[in-house]
Simulated scan of single mutants.
Amino acid sequence: MSDNPATWQMVEYEGFEIHVSPRPKQPDDGRFTYIGYVCHPGADPAIPGHAVPFHADGEESFASIEDACYEAVHAGRSIVDGTHPDLSVLSLVTGGV
């Protein structure tokens, strides 16, 4: 989950860190997507169980890097809040990581 660290942005939310990285959807098409993960502050996302990874759904794309980042942070917040339909931080909380 590292890639180029300069492309990652971090937002603190409700005692967690949300890390997001906008990516070009296709080379030279001007659309963007994102990847990200949620973790406890200071956790190493490379260690299994220390982060909850997420990404944009299938064909979802955005007109700008800013739009992709905004949606990525929104998705991360929904994971922390427990409102994401598929992902949760429960394993981070109960696992003691």
Rank of each mutant, 00 (worst) to 15 (best):
E12I: 03
V73D: 01
E12Y: 08
A6G: 07
Q26I: 00
A43N: 14
I79S: 03
S64R: 09
V38P: 00
E14Q: 15
G49S: 10
H50L: 07
S91V: 09
G96L: 05
D44T: 09
A56I: 04
I35F: 03
P27K: 15
V38D: 04
N4F: 12
F54N: 05
Q9S: 10
T7N: 15
E71S: 12
V52M: 02
P22L: 08
E71R: 14
T94E: 13
V11W: 06
H74A: 08
T7D: 15
P48K: 15
L92M: 05
P5G: 13
V73Q: 01
N4A: 11
S21L: 13
L90S: 08
I35Q: 08
H40F: 07
P22F: 11
C39F: 02
E12A: 11
H74I: 02
A63W: 06
M1C: 04
G49A: 09
P24F: 14
S78K: 00
P27W: 12
Q9I: 00
F16L: 12
L87T: 03
A56C: 05
A56W: 06
H19S: 08
P41F: 12
G42P: 02
E59G: 06
E17K: 07
G42Q: 10
T83N: 03
V97D: 06
F32W: 15
V11M: 14
G15W: 06
G58P: 05
G30D: 10
I65S: 08
L92N: 07
S78T: 00
S78L: 00
D81K: 00
V73Y: 02
E71Y: 13
I79D: 05
F16V: 08
S21G: 12
R77A: 01
G58F: 10
I79R: 05
T7H: 15
F16W: 11
V93P: 01
I18S: 00
P22R: 13
S88A: 03
D67F: 10
L87Y: 07
D86R: 05
P24T: 14
V89Y: 10
I47N: 08
H84G: 01
P5Q: 14
V11D: 08
V38I: 04
A56R: 07
H74Q: 04
F54D: 05
L87C: 02
D86I: 02
G42W: 12
H74V: 05
H84V: 00
N4H: 12
F32I: 07
E59P: 01
E14D: 14
D67H: 14
T83A: 02
A72W: 02
G36H: 01
A51S: 15
T94P: 03
A6E: 14
A68N: 11
